[in-house]
Simulated scan of single mutants.
Amino acid sequence: MIETPFDLSYHYDDNLQDVPNNSGEMQQAIDFWQAQLDQPGLEIFQRIKLLGRIGGYARTLRNLDRAEQALSTALTLSKAIENRRFEAANSIKLAHVYQWQQRYVESETMFEAVITLCQNDPEAAPYLDFAYQHFGKCKFDQQKYAEALQCFEQALNIRMEKGDSELIASTELAIATTHSRQKCHDSGASATYH
């Protein structure tokens, strides 16, 4: 698969959502991958990888319909070839799309299923921290801050074992943001009742 020369970097906003640093280049990357996807004779593994990339970055660009379509196809193909690693990765990404579509029941059901998959299948196990991290963000979006913190703590424990400083920093940011939001939420709620 040809690597993209485009800027795919992003940062997190106050709601723990990823925001592209260069939306134009991110869109160019999606178009670039789409052109590869349209090539005849593409192997199924390459097709799944391209669909996963398109879906993930389309979500970041808030093109949720395109993201859902690409990731649903990637997930279907992953299950068809019984590749648990691809299944876990694309399930997390699709659940994240459902979350942003505010389809929380579907999102939570999918996150719970992928956590179970990661806990029970060694091939999917490397994605367990990602599943907890994104499940936490789903809880955060619903203002279920205590539950979000539990998920983030689970992710952090795994990430500390992995020793990946970038992933650890991402989870620590999520925890700090959730604590802050929880304090504001609790003080606002208590002020209402006085």
Rank of each mutant, 00 (worst) to 15 (best):
M1A: 04
M1K: 00
T4C: 04
F6L: 10
D7R: 02
D7E: 08
S9T: 15
H11Q: 11
D13N: 10
L16V: 14
V19G: 04
N21S: 13
E25T: 15
A35Q: 14
D38F: 10
D38I: 15
D38Y: 06
P40Y: 11
P40R: 06
I44T: 15
F45L: 04
Q46T: 15
L50Y: 04
L50F: 05
L51G: 02
R59Q: 08
T60W: 01
N63C: 09
L64Y: 14
L64V: 15
L64F: 13
R66I: 14
R66S: 10
A67L: 11
E68L: 02
E68F: 02
A70G: 03
A70T: 06
S72R: 05
A74D: 06
L75N: 10
S78K: 06
S78H: 08
S78R: 04
A80P: 01
I81F: 04
N83S: 12
R84T: 15
R85Q: 08
N90T: 13
K93M: 08
H96F: 01
V97L: 01
Y98R: 03
Q101A: 12
R103L: 06
C118S: 09
C118W: 03
D121V: 14
A124V: 14
A125N: 12
A125E: 13
A125I: 13
A125H: 11
Y127R: 06
Y127A: 02
D129S: 14
A131R: 06
H134G: 12
F135N: 12
C138M: 13
D141S: 07
Q143I: 14
L149R: 09
Q154K: 01
L156C: 01
I158E: 12
I158K: 04
I158N: 07
R159D: 11
K162D: 10
K162V: 15
G163P: 04
D164A: 12
D164K: 01
S165N: 07
I168C: 06
S170D: 13
E172Y: 00
L173W: 01
I175K: 06
T177R: 06
T177P: 00
T177G: 11
S180F: 10
C184R: 09
H185I: 11
H185G: 01
S187L: 07
T192W: 05
Y193R: 07
